[in-house]
């Protein structure tokens, strides 16, 4: 028995996964799992004691991330992962708090919380999986759906314009801002490591495919979407956040755009209020 066990191949991230909960709910062709793996790999790479991590998710496909990670993990209400994480971080600043959620959760229903956490430079890491759609509910238009794209609630094309998320993060005060796609898994992991080690509010947008609910309606096959991620993207660190609109025809800019050091609210609270 012992020998068999020794020879058994163990997934390198196994100690961070609630394996008893597998299989996961993510569809084949979905990118969330890849981003999730990159996040876990980054947690391992930091070398920080796992007990010092907590993951908070909202609602949606990406929001299920917290349910599979073997950390103290919280699956909260729709849009509220950031204020929940804020409560954790302020009450125990020694913890590394990662928000793992989707574009609908973080930027439509939860948009107000995002800009305020960024303004405060709250020392949390926010990972937003942007799949351009509400996946869990069956493919309705999101605040990130490109103009004229089709969804279950924009059958004639999206009449609205989407957010430029890194610009919003930067304008709101985020001190670390990056964008990658899920196929850039090495860069993504490196970026997550940086973000976790970063003092202050860090934000990483990860473009990710939803073949079932976005690709299908917009006639983009699973592999073609990944090809867009590979071929129609440009890595340009320190690019101007105002020029980060997503248009695959022109080329989508990836990279790290902001990395500045500023004090955080937990540090400032201690200085201003407690040590007065």
């Amino acid at each position: 028995m012992a020998k068999a066990k020794a020879n058994q191949k163990v997934h390198p991230l196994e100690e961070l996964i609630r394996t008893e909960r597998l299989p996961h709910i993510w569809c084949s062709g979905c990118g969330v799992g890849t981003v999730f793996s990159a996040c876990l790999a980054a947690i391992q790479e930091t070398g920080i004691d796992h007990k010092k991590f907590s993951m908070v998710s909202g609602i949606g496909c990406s929001g299920r991330g917290a349910g599979y990670v073997k950390l103290d993990s919280f699956h909260t209400t729709h849009g509220r992962s950031i204020p929940f994480a804020t409560g954790i971080k302020m009450a125990n600043p020694s913890l590394n708090v990662i928000v793992f959620s989707g574009d609908g959760d973080l930027f439509a229903i939860g948009g107000n919380h995002f800009i305020h956490a960024a303004r405060r430079n709250m020392d949390i890491t926010v990972i937003c999986i942007n799949n351009f759609i509400y996946g869990m509910t069956g493919g309705q238009v999101a605040a990130t759906t490109p103009h004229m794209d089709r969804s279950a609630t924009t059958p004639y094309g999206n009449p609205e314009m989407p957010f430029n998320l890194p610009l919003m993060a930067y304008a709101s005060g985020a001190t670390y801002v990056a964008r990658w796609t899920m196929i850039h898994s090495r860069d993504l992991t490196d970026s997550f490591v940086e973000a976790i080690n970063h003092r202050g509010f860090s934000f990483i947008e990860v473009l990710s495919p939803c073949p079932i609910n976005y690709g299908r309606r917009n006639k983009i096959k699973s592999l073609d979407m990944l090809k867009l991620f590979a071929d129609n993207t440009i890595i340009k660190n320190n690019a101007d956040p105002a020029e980060l609109d997503i248009d695959f025809k022109k080329g989508v800019v990836l990279g790290k755009f902001v990395d500045i050091d500023k004090p955080t609210p937990d540090e400032n609270y201690e200085k201003v209020c407690m040590m007065r």
């Binding site: 804020t86 409560g87 954790i88």
Partner: peptide, 17 residues
């Protein structure tokens, strides 16, 4: 916090510490 939803949610996060 930025609104009452956030105020209420923050106290739950904090309670778990």
């Amino acid at each position: 916090m930025e609104d009452e939803i956030a105020a209420m949610t923050s106290i739950l996060g904090a309670a778990w510490t």
